[in-house]
Amino acid sequence: MSTPSVVVEHLSKSFGETRAVEDVSFEVQPGEVFGLLGPNGAGKTTTIRMMLDIFKPDSGRVEILGSDPAKVSKDRIGYLPEDRGLYKDIPLEQVLIFLATLKGLGDGEAKSRLVPWLERVDLYEHRRKKVQELSKGMQQKAQVIATLLHEPDLIVVDEPFAGLDPVNTRLIKEIIQEQVAAGRSVIMSTHQMYQVQALCDRIVLIDHGRSVLYGRVDEIRRDFAANAVVLEGEGDFSGLPHVLDARQEDGGWHLSLEAEADPQEVLRALATRPGVRLERFERAEPSLDDIFVTVVTAGRRAGAAQAGNGAAQAGRARDDDE
């Protein structure tokens, strides 16, 4: 395996009494889209800011493109922060050229690279307008250009689809896929789980500052899958061998299998059953959305239980004192 683009090891950061990030570790490989997920306030943005040397960690280690974040050339990183911002009282073209020159491009090169980008995202006609005159979606697309114009090796995008209509969402998705195809690494933080499922190879899920889930998206989904299959088609799907329960769901059938049952045996049984016509047969894997909710909810319950135990123990201690 090639040298990881990002290595995060046991990263921790506190602000006063608040523990924002605690012992988070993950790696991002070149040419992959990596999902940095978590509920609001989980510590994702703080983790990103430590990766980008905006904040220094209290402990742990970060390595970006093989170097310390403070020493790696900032020109090799493209960042689309969650809190969007462009200079509002300056024409769009000037802002983007200025930001590109800060990333090491010359004025002329920045200008020549900018034109095709502006044309591609339908902003060319608006290039002389001040940023404040552009719609939110246009500003979002301009921000994407600012992130990518200097062709960075590592791209960090926080909620890249926020404020975009379906057409532009698809456009940005295509752009991300092109960047990955060009061998660049993309770290994407978003709450749109179907986009993560569609784009990301691997993810880390952070909750309350801690890493609670980390790995390949397909493996995680398999791990969370119950022993069940989903099928669509015509015919009688009742009374099949090794099937505990068959229920209709979202226009198809959801079959719960016995613990050790092999779905292939069910498929063979269906293939031989007269009058059955199958259009879809697959293992029932939960969506990332389901997994996100399951993990985060379980974490909150555990936290509440721990707090309850703590309170009960404190209460008992008080009773003892009395």
Partner: peptide
């Protein structure tokens, strides 16, 4: 106010 600082400080 423009929230540009996070972009700028990842450049300089």
């Amino acid at each position: 106010e423009n929230r540009t600082i996070e972009i700028v400080t990842t450049s300089v």
